[in-house]
Write a protein that binds this DNA or RNA. Sequence first.
RNA 1: UGUCUCAUGGUGUAAUGGUAGCACAGAGGUUUUUGGUACCUUUAGUCUGGGUUCGAAUCCUUGUGAGACAACCA
Length: 566
Amino acid sequence: MTDKSEKTEGSRPLNFIEEIVEREIRDNINNGRVHTRFPPEPNGYLHIGHAKAICLDFGMAQKYGGKCNLRFDDTNPIKEDVEYVDSIKEDIKWLGFDWEDREYYASDYFGKLFEFAVKLIKEGFAYVDDQSAEVISKQKGTPTEPGIESPYRNRSVQENLDLFYRMNEGEFPEGARVLRARVDMTSPNMHMRDPIIYRIILSPHHRTGSTWKVYPMYDFAHGQSDYFEGITNSLCTLEFEVHRPLYDWFVDHLKTDDYRPHQTEFNRLNLTYTVMSKRKLLQLVQEKRVNGWDDPRMPTLCGLRRRGFTPESIRSFVEKIGYTKVEALNDVALLEHSIREDLNKRAMRVSAVINPLKMIITNYPEGLVEEMTIENNPEDISAGERLVSFSREIYIEQDDFMEEPPAKFFRLGPGREVRLKGAYIVKCEGFKKNEVTGVIEEIYCTYDAQTRSGMPESNRKVKGTLHWVSVPHALDAEVRIYDRLFSVEEPMANKDVDFLEYLNPDSLKVLTNCKVEASLAGVKPYDLFQFQRIGYFNVDPDSTPQHLVFNRTVSLKDSWAKVKNK
RNA sequence: UGUCUCAUGGUGUAAUGGUAGCACAGAGGUUUUUGGUACCUUUAGUCUGGGUUCGAAUCCUUGUGAGACAACCA
């Protein structure tokens, strides 16, 4: 009964995590509370894969009346920096989520974690190992062979305690000693073979300075931090599945009543034609294969934002791909669909000619300018209308004229008629061609004065409608045409080929001679538009009133391109 | 020669023992002053073998394939 009502409530069926949570609520596990956390490490920029996690962590809390904490997992002072903290917070807010006053850091718990380690030592569950990293690693065995016990495994509690305190006094150099949990060296799960839980790091931490000389490892910090914060559901990606027994082992030694957090793993987001690993993204930035973390070709949230993606489109995409335990490769076409779907509803339509070809309307009076009324968005009447100047000389798209057009070409060619969007029907009477280069330099048309939009004659059927910009009114603009960063679906799939080999050489084309309508004079960075018949574009932060710069977010679907390529 | 996880159209997902559905992509069409949008139609799927059952994508089992795990990273 309850099952049914819960399922029909939403517009889609529950995913497996929602099913788990609803069962827990029903069974009053953890008093029926739902409290999640998003735990980024402040060592890089967030990408769309993180967005999938953010939407789940914050989304579950929202859906079930719970809370979601933001917790920086800052247990490694060598790799982390405050620089990243701010960008991460900005990206989460931009995506549309709010952690309110619950901004935490694993480093907030260094004291409690240290005490817990001391407790484990006293109970015989942890020991100081004096061996080198290499030796410890060797003793760990392999996935198919058991490990062997360290000669230091049975040190006295007193000695362990003494050594551990002195490790934290800075008495020993980095690497000299570690603290290990005393679990099981023969466990088939490598993570249970006496994992290292504390190591000596002498570099200062970005938040705690030089207070500490020993720092907890991820496994010794994460579950415990969840516990300290009262987290109920610790949601993470599939590769942490093998860590779960250790997560539970620590929580079991920490908990004092029925409350306990537990970990559930879901599949990562992989996208075709890109890479998602922080290391690879860093490499692209460092080797200047892209222009920084916010390069519009990057799958980072700042990159997608600069490219013109909206938070709504990203959330909608994440909603569409779902959460399962199957390792998936998501088609970037679905992301593109999500942004088109969103922008179709909200983007103002404007006229921009990115590869200009001048048209002279020979029978149009010289010096005459007419103001044409054009709707701002046919999908949204409330967006209103605007006036656009029309004159004797206009720019049209080079692609909209062919000297010898094929049958299916609905645009302009010698003797053909087309409609100029919101203006007149014109007929091509001739063109000027550079005899040396073969380039069409100008085309000459006549217009039918009775076909101005709104006049009865304007209803005449013509095959095509072109966008245009009046020459004397046009604004110059730079347009950056972005395409997929890689030319293959899975740049990492072939182990014998460096992923850089698959970089798409045409992922960025800069067009500097573009002409846009005058209404674009006052645009601000991140403003969104549809360039009529071309695609969705936004204003790049590089843009100034003197030098307009637009990024192509995504092209419009182009059924002519399909016909043409047949 | 380990442990854990997974396997449904091209892709991502649903169906929780009872008509294999949805979205994207593909194909075709209608409408259209965007070759856009919207709408309609359509192609295409339960990894393999066995078992339980009136009935199996679902439960049991065999095999196959894929992934994760051997950082003093997270």
